[in-house]
Amino acid sequence: MTRACVIGWPIAHSRSPLIHNHWLRQYGIDGSYTREPVKPEDLQTFLQSLQALGLAGCNVTVPHKETAFALAAIRDLSAVAVSAANTLWLEGGRLACANTDTYGFMANLDAAAPDWRKRAGPVLILGAGGSARAVVYGFLEAGIGDVRVFNRTLDRAQDLVRHFGARVSAHAWDDRNEHVPEAAVIVNTTTLGMNGAGSVGIEFTRAQSGAVAADLVYVPLETEFLQTARANGLIGVDGLGMLLHQAVPGFEKWFGVRPVVTSELYQIIARDIGGAKC
């Protein structure tokens, strides 16, 4: 039996076992995927013991992503780009890491808004944390030449400019709506709107019809950000698809099969978070 898990502190909230165990059943694989609570002070020992514990690898969630990246001996370019890892596996007995958030976001964007590349205009990124780094990297890899990052602390947005170069620009949070009329894609990478708390405050009435609004928040599935965007003629892309797609590379690494994200899986997770779509 092949075993993998997700680690974090806390970890009870993670829906990764629902996703991976669905695929294990679907593909008839003799394997298991569990949640493992790991305290920050125990992380290094746990990762050094993967092989002894009989684990092919693990997913990593808060607060371990940066430390896991630092501990890995082999680092995929996706992890190097954001200085954080969410997927770990063993390669010749050595700890290897990747960050599949970029893949997950871009795969979901392509699936939910397949024509997004045809729209002219900059990409606006709201927030400048680790998730923003993964999203910025994805757009740069896709060849986008104008990515604008808005953050309440301007210096954090400027960190992304220093990290990624001239195609990225940093802007004050209060200036975000001045850029909306030009935007081809607007992405919320903040936690505003999670569980209905807080608002990103984007004036979608000023946006181009048919522009794309993507939210990384997926609880609730239909955030205020997405509701307002869709009501004003934008294409809405929810965060649940990113969660599902980011799980694909890790499953393939551990279990040897590249799984497919289906509407059935989407509905299973949507029902679990209490927001299944008809």
Rank of each mutant, 00 (worst) to 15 (best):
L192K: 09
G104D: 07
I144L: 13
T189H: 04
A56F: 01
W9I: 00
Y33A: 06
S209F: 14
G92M: 07
E66S: 03
A12C: 01
G93Y: 06
A184P: 01
V135S: 08
Q26D: 11
E203Y: 13
E41T: 05
G28V: 04
E41S: 11
P220T: 04
T228R: 14
Q267V: 13
V261E: 12
G104C: 10
L216H: 03
H163R: 14
R75A: 03
R3E: 14
S199E: 15
W173M: 08
V161A: 09
A96F: 11
T87V: 15
D30L: 05
E91S: 07
D174E: 15
S169Y: 06
L234V: 05
L18V: 14
D238E: 15
T102L: 08
W116N: 00
A197S: 11
V149L: 10
R133W: 01
A207K: 05
I273A: 02
A229V: 07
D159N: 14
M106H: 11
L95S: 03
N232V: 02
A270W: 11
R148N: 02
W89L: 02
R133G: 10
P10W: 07
P114N: 06
C58M: 09
R230L: 10
H179Q: 14
V135M: 02
L124C: 09
C5I: 01
D101I: 08
L192V: 02
T153D: 14
V161D: 04
E178C: 02
G104M: 10
R206Y: 03
A229I: 12
A111P: 01
Q246F: 08
L124I: 04
